[in-house]
């Protein structure tokens, strides 16, 4: 079970969180023309990297904030966690 540092609450067990997928995907702006390919990429197409991955988690049974977690998908090492709108260097 992972140990995830919620930027709002501190270190908590994985069972307080729910996984939310790739955090680098950006929703196309509303009312903007998008091609089929762009839309498909947003809705369906995801890379599945081995290694560092920025992903979304929600602290569901805690502060309910969506956070970003930089995690190694192979070793499960967590390098850093960020608030939803924190700038990521």
């Amino acid at each position: 079970m992972l140990h995830i540092k919620c930027p709002h609450c501190g270190i908590r067990s994985q069972n307080e969180f729910s996984y939310g997928g790739d955090a680098t995907v950006k929703r196309p702006e509303l009312n903007k023309e998008v091609t089929d390919q762009e839309w498909d990429n947003f809705v369906y197409n995801r890379v599945s990297p081995r290694g560092k991955h920025l992903e979304l988690w929600q602290h569901l049974s805690g502060c309910r904030q969506w956070i970003k977690v930089e995690r190694d998908t192979a070793t499960h090492e967590i390098f850093n966690t960020y608030k939803a709108n924190e700038e990521i260097a």
Partner: peptide, 13 residues
């Protein structure tokens, strides 16, 4: 509720 929170926190803060 999670769906609403997702859009408020991440998409349209």
């Amino acid at each position: 509720l999670s769906h609403l929170e997702y859009y408020l926190q991440l998409v349209w803060p």
